[in-house]
Design a protein around this nucleic acid. Structure first.
Lengths: 232, 232
DNA sequence: ATTATCTATAGATCTATAGATAATGC
DNA sequence: ATTATCTATAGATCTATAGATAATGC
């Protein structure tokens, strides 16, 4: 066995020497992410993944030490994309001149888009995390990093916030919106009233509630709302 | 084979003739609910359930046609308890003289208690529902029934609500609180700010937000808050 | 020559059944 | 006599490996 790339002490992924190798590995990760999102960890067999990636079971084990390592790799790839995307989204330069309302609106739109655009991708990784406390914690830390960035962005605009305890209020509002987004994006969505409404109506009502709680002016009250809009 | 009790055309549960039979069946359902909550559907084998219930694999198949039927029975039992509990909780006589704030406060306390008291029970049933769209829908309908009852209770008190569109506002608030409760009670709770706070603080902040959105008077403003409290 | 892929299969589970044994209650 | 339980095992998966075959690129 030649050089390997390590996820942890026990899990290696072969670093391919040929272009063919990279193509197969990517195909395996894509196929696995899709199947994991669709059927979950236990219902997805290595043979299923191999078939969906148009290669053999033997090939899977040539690239990944075992099934768990393949799953870890799916999770790792999702985390990397999540980290890269959120870091870029939080770049302070993008937010000059943006109001609390702008930041929250963008947060909602961004999260909905992330959940809708790549459902297989994201849900595949989350399905893996569901089965391993360590991975769940790792994803939780990543999520916390994102929410901390948002919190900072919002507290920079504390002058707009009428609530007597801005740090508490911002933390609560982000938790609230995060919970509602999660419920709305869940595949297994237990039917709720808002499920029938459009994303636009959902976002508007969330903002009305959040801005009311924070005691910032709603979008209608602001002077020249469009001129103050940040990037995106 | 003698008389049977039917869950559906394909799933029967044997109606025991001896007291011994009922005891074993209950033990099997308890054991299954616990294991399902802990490890999920696929990771729970029939042998595991039998061992946890202190009986043999053969016994399991004497009582339940197959593994799926056993799982359905766990789900069915959870639904029955949920339905009975929520119907009792919504009895109009319990709510005479209660304010919007009282109703929402009780809803939060009730839901937290339900989620905390019988985690194995509830999560066992939900784990099963997760794997079957039809069951998920059935549970969704049950949940909708509960939320509809709550909505009615709240709209009976519409005079307290300052929001221009009470039906919309009540629907939104219940969705919001439901999402936050679900996120808080989830085992796989992705660390959030509120996870570190006590249930009391969580409830208070939820109420402050909800009452603000609905534009009802907060608990502090009400005259003689204790004298107007409903049952529980 | 090395790296990647495939086929075939061993070994470990897990579901479900058959047939023997034990307990119940009329 | 009937009902419930147990033991043992057949048959179906699924993971992982061994060994043969094909493609790559120095």
């Amino acid at each position: 066995m030649t050089r390997t790339r390590w996820i942890s002490d026990l899990h290696w992924v072969r670093a391919g020497q040929q272009t063919r190798s990279q193509r197969t590995q990517a195909a395996l990760l894509d196929a696995a992410a899709m199947l994991l999102a669709e059927k979950g960890v236990e219902a997805t067999s290595v043979a299923d993944v191999a078939a969906a990636a148009h290669c053999s079971v033997g090939s899977v084990y040539h690239h990944f030490r075992d099934k768990q390592t393949l799953l870890y790799a799916v999770f790792e790839r999702m985390c990397e994309e999540f980290r890269a995307t959120t870091r870029e989204a939080l770049a302070p330069s993008r937010w000059e001149g943006a109001s609390v309302d702008d930041v929250l609106r963008s947060f909602l739109a961004f999260s909905l888009e992330l959940g809708r655009d790549r459902p297989a991708f994201k849900r595949g990784g989350l399905a893996v995390a569901q089965h391993d406390p360590a991975l769940r914690e790792h994803y939780g830390a990543l999520r916390t990093e994102f929410y901390d960035g948002l919190t900072e962005l919002l507290l920079d605009r504390a002058t707009e916030i009428g609530h007597p305890d801005p740090p508490l209020a911002v933390g609560f509002v982000l938790d609230q919106l995060g919970s509602m987004l999660q419920a709305r994006l869940e595949e297994s969505a237990l039917t709720s009233r808002l499920a029938n409404r459009s994303d636009e109506a959902f976002v508007e009502e969330c903002l009305r509630s959040a801005c009311g709680y924070l005691q910032v002016q709603g979008p209608a009250v602001k002077p020249e709302p469009d001129a103050r809009r940040g990037a995106r």
